[in-house]
Computed example of a mutant assay.
Amino acid sequence: MAINKIALVGAGYMGGGIAQIFAIAGHPVTLADADAETARRNLDRLISEARDWQARGLFQPGAAALVEQNLSAAESIEAAVADADYIQEAVSEKPEVKDQVFRRIEAAARPDAIIASNTSTLPIGGLAKSLTKADRFLGVHFSNPAPFIPGVEVILHEGTDESLVPQVEELVQSTGKLTARLKDSPGFVLNRLQYALLKEAISIVDDGVASAEDVDIITRTTFGFRLPFFGPFAIADMAGLDIYRDCFRTFEEHYGERFATPEGLKKLVEAGHLGTKSGGGFVIPAGDTTDLITYRNTAYARLQQLLNELGQAPGVK
C-alpha cells in the first residue's frame, strides 16, 4: 500500500508541526482535535505560521502554499481517519487519553490503515493494548518543533508487522527527516539520553559544584558543541576508548556504581579496539583521520560563526 492520505489526530503545537511537514511533502492531511472548532482554529494557525516562517526564510519558497493547499480540518476524529492510509496520533501524554483516542480511531479507520503514536516516553507495547488489531501500530516520534528538528524515532512493539516499517520510514523520509528504527523501551533513545543528562545536571547543582547557568554554559559550549555533527559513540571513538575506560575508573571510584565502566566499553578495549587510533571503535574504523579531522574543525568553526551571527538566545543567561 502506498501511503498518501494522512490523518493527524491532535492538532496542537506538536501535531500541527507534523501536519505541516507532511503537507509540504505533498500529502493531503486532515486535522482532528477535541472538537471541530479546535481543529479549524489550529488549521488557521498552521497556515498563518507557515506564511510567517516562509517570509522569514525558515520555510522554502512555496511551502506556505502547500500547507494551505494540503491541510484541512475535520468535524471529528472519526471523519478524519475514515479514509486515511496513515494516522498519526499526537494527543496529550496521558495513557487514559491515548487509550480513548486509539479506540475511536480503530473503530472508524480502514482495516489496512497504519496507526502511529507520537508518544515521547510511553512504551508502544502498552499503548498497543488499546487496539484489537495492533499489528499495524507502531511509534513514530517526532521532536519539538517538528518542522525544524530532523531526527525521528520509529519504534516497533513485539506485535508490529515489520513489513509495514519500510513504508513508514519512506513516508517520514519524504519530508526530509532522518529515521532511526528502534525496539520498544520506555523513553526510547532520545528521552532516555535527554533525561539522564538532566538528572546528572541537577545532581551537579544539588552537590554545589556549579550553578544551573554554569552547567548550561559548559554543556552547550563543550561536548554539546560537538553533538550536531557527532553522536556519543563517534566522539568516544575519536578521543580513544582506552581513555574513556580510564576516566570511568575515576568516576566509579568517586561516584560508585552509577558511573561504573560499561561492559560494552570494557570488551572493546580488551579486544584492542581503541577507536580511530587502533582497531576501530563503536562506529568509526581505524585509519587515516585527516579528512575526518578537517571536517570536524571546519564544522566547529562554522557553528561558532553561526552562533556569533545569531547572538545569545533571548532570556537565556
Rank of each mutant, 00 (worst) to 15 (best):
L8S: 00
M14I: 07
G15Q: 03
G16M: 05
I18V: 12
I18M: 09
A19Y: 03
A19D: 02
Q20N: 05
F22L: 07
A23Y: 06
A23L: 05
A23N: 09
V29Y: 00
D33K: 00
D35K: 07
A36K: 06
E37D: 09
T38Q: 04
A39E: 03
L43S: 04
D44S: 09
I47G: 10
E49W: 03
Q54R: 08
A55H: 01
A55N: 02
L58K: 01
F59G: 03
A64M: 02
L66W: 06
E68F: 06
E68W: 09
L71S: 05
S72K: 04
A74C: 15
I77V: 11
D83F: 02
D85Y: 01
Y86T: 00
I87W: 05
E89Y: 10
E93F: 03
E93Y: 04
K94P: 01
D99P: 01
R104A: 13
R110P: 02
R110H: 01
I114M: 06
S117E: 06
T121F: 03
G125K: 01
K129N: 10
T132I: 05
F137C: 13
L138D: 00
H141N: 15
S143F: 13
P147K: 01
P147W: 02
I149T: 07
V154E: 00
I155T: 08
I155D: 07
L156K: 03
G159Q: 10
S163C: 11
V165E: 06
P166C: 07
P166G: 09
V168K: 01
V168D: 03
S174H: 02
S174G: 04
G176P: 05
K177S: 14
K177E: 12
K177F: 12
A180I: 11
A180Q: 09
R181A: 05
K183M: 10
G187S: 07
G187K: 04
V189S: 06
N191M: 10
Q194S: 07
A196C: 15
A196W: 15
L198T: 06
K199D: 15
A201P: 12
I202T: 14
S203Y: 14
D206F: 04
G208N: 04
A210H: 10
D216N: 09
I217Q: 12
T221S: 11
T222R: 14
F225V: 03
P228H: 07
I235G: 08
L241R: 14
D242K: 13
I243T: 09
Y244A: 09
D246M: 02
T250D: 07
G256F: 03
F259I: 04
L265Y: 01
K266I: 14
K267W: 00
L268V: 06
E270T: 15
E270I: 12
T276N: 15
T276S: 15
V283K: 12
V283W: 11
V283S: 14
G287P: 08
G287L: 11
D288F: 14
T290F: 06
D291R: 09
D291K: 11
D291A: 13
L292K: 02
N297H: 15
T298E: 11
A299H: 08
L303R: 02
Q304C: 09
L307R: 15
L307Y: 14
N308H: 09
L310H: 10
A313Y: 13
